[in-house]
Design a protein around this nucleic acid. Structure first.
Length: 153
DNA sequence: GCCAACGTTGGC
DNA sequence: GCCAACGTTGGC
């Protein structure tokens, strides 16, 4: 099974790449969109993940993480005190899953969304074409390209 | 703060 | 199963 590549969004005010660096490993809870969930369920240990800061100035890719635990039920869906509580989810058949990811690196500079949009090699990236999805698959060439852009300047 | 895009809900 | 209403995302 070849390694796959992903992009996951987070709002830095809520959980940033610096928080991930501090924590080392974190569970990626709170994904409440079926397509995003399905992407998490397709992840394997060892897959690499671009970390994207949304609602940030500037929005963009800020670093890399690695999947260290494959999808398992997100227990926050059963916690009435959690903002991620889902009263419609059945504990016998959980609706929402999460993965664990580990910090790999923080880029020396943010690869901003305008730069990604302007790059011909990234013209088909889902981030541009289906902007709102919070967990996306990234093609190997796109992953390499963003890593390369992060080294520029 | 605005609003376009788009996913979800629920009446019928 | 359609689709209008509604809620959320997220760039600007």
């Amino acid at each position: 099974m070849p390694r796959r590549y992903w992009l996951m969004k987070t709002e830095p005010d809520v959980y940033s790449i610096d928080d991930l660096e501090r924590d080392g490993v974190t569970c990626w809870e709170g994904v409440r969109n079926y397509q995003a969930r399905n992407n998490m369920m397709a992840m394997s240990v060892g897959d690499e993940v671009l970390i994207y800061h949304s609602n940030a100035k500037p929005p963009g890719v800020v670093g890399i993480a690695r999947v260290v635990r494959e999808a398992y039920p997100d227990h926050f869906q059963f916690d009435p005190g959690s903002r991620y509580f889902d009263p419609k989810s059945d504990p016998e058949n959980p609706r929402w899953y999460m993965v664990d990811v580990a910090f790999v690196k923080k880029f020396d500079r943010v690869v901003g969304l305008p730069e990604i949009k302007a790059d011909p090699e990234l013209a088909d990236i889902q981030l541009v074409r289906h902007g709102r999805l919070s967990v996306q698959e990234v093609k190997p060439a796109e992953f390499r390209r963003i890593k390369k852009l992060a080294r520029k300047k």
